[in-house]
Design a protein around this nucleic acid. Structure first.
Lengths: 220, 220
DNA sequence: GCATTTCTTGACACATGTGTCAGATTTTTT
DNA sequence: AAAAAATCTGACACATGTGTCAAGAAATGC
């Protein structure tokens, strides 16, 4: 499911190279993409090196040639996902008009759920498990990082541009509503009775999320 | 984590019995509760019969005495969870005032996330995996069931009691926002910088979700 | 086109996990 | 308190999965 959605990615550790490493880059990409599918579908424990290798079209020991062990491969993927998110979702700008900035932010998050559902699911599973392999990430400065993310809501509220809604929980509301379309795709498809939401249906979903939240916090 | 939240439950298959089966009931309960913790934390594949047995304080073959195999135990738990949800979350009543009924519905869903986070997480993981063990559930009449759930929104909108918001996506918005507090508890705690949201913080979360959504769909 | 590096692959050792079974023990019935 | 039923438990067979290694093949550098 969603093979087409897999992102073609450059592994950050090997970007400057030329001829040498050509094969390496190609195979690492094959493996990472295959591993994403497997981890997303079966979780860390359920995915096997063998299934990843088969999906990548490589013999199993070859996977070990590029990645020391399963945990390292998984950790690398988690880190790729987090980098991807950080890059794509820059902060909301307090200087902008909330109606514009927030709409754009939600639309981008929804596009993310549409285009990178595997990434979202891997991350979601990790958190559902208590994030045992993201301890550092969540301990070191995550609270501060999150506080900065929500500051914009406080500023807009102070300027009277939106209601004084609890910024923390507003952020969770936005995140949950948008990520839901990646993480719970199976349930959504079953409820709607399709194999995949059409572009039109997805646009309607986005519009619903945007309009309810904007109106809900008093933004025209 | 969340041991206290585990529900004391009656296994549906053995409710009418008396003295005989006393031990059976007690042990099945021990096993199911232990299995919920394990499945919620590690997923179907990651959980082992041995870890479940140890958590339940029983030797491993004893688990097999009560449950034929791992899949059956897991399936039984899924079915318990679905029954629990169905029982607790009856439909929204179109005859009621949306402001009252919807608030109560959201509050109940939030209470569920607070009180039965393990159940929510097990279900979420199953769906994230593509629900391979809920195929029947999602195929047989789920679309119809869901359509009935959303009908109330259409009726309220027709009566002018709320905006004509897309009922399907409104339902997803409510589900995602509320279940998020069970499923993403780890991330939420890290963001807020606590080990567990206080009752007050949780009430604030509930109030935020309720007020943004109600206002967002034009309900006073 | 030869030497060096990179990559491939089958075979192996080891670890963990599932489910079974038979005999022992405990609980319940009569 | 004897018989029957239910429960417990150690030991086993089997399957699957991880990571290693050494030798061979292919690609690259000179």
């Amino acid at each position: 499911m969603n093979k087409a959605a897999s992102v073609e990615l450059e592994l950050p550790s090997h970007k400057g190279e030329k001829a040498t490493g050509r094969i390496r880059r190609k195979n690492e990409q094959l493996i990472v993409n295959a591993a994403k599918e497997e981890f997303a579908a079966k979780g860390y424990h359920g995915a096997t090196i063998d299934s990843i290798a088969r999906r990548a079209g490589l013999p199993r020991p070859n996977v070990h040639y590029y990645f020391d062990n399963k945990l390292q491969l998984y950790a690398e993927i988690l880190s790729i996902i987090i980098d991807l998110w950080d890059d794509a979702l820059n902060d909301l700008d307090p200087a902008e008009e909330p109606a514009v900035a927030l709409r754009e932010y939600i639309e981008r998050k929804m596009a993310f759920s549409r285009n990178y559902p595997l990434d979202s699911r891997i991350f979601a599973k990790e958190i559902l498990s208590g994030a045992p392999r993201l301890e550092t990430y969540f301990k070191s400065g995550y609270g501060v990082w999150f506080e900065r993310k929500t500051r914009v809501f406080r500023e807009w509220a102070a300027q009277g541009k939106m209601d004084a809604v609890d910024p923390t929980h507003l952020m969770f509301l936005i995140w949950s509503a948008t990520q839901h379309y990646a993480d719970f795709e199976t349930q959504i498809n079953a409820a709607v009775g399709v194999n995949r939401l059409s572009d039109e249906a997805y646009a309607a979903a986005t519009e619903t999320v945007v309009s309810v939240i904007l109106k809900g916090i008093g933004v025209a």
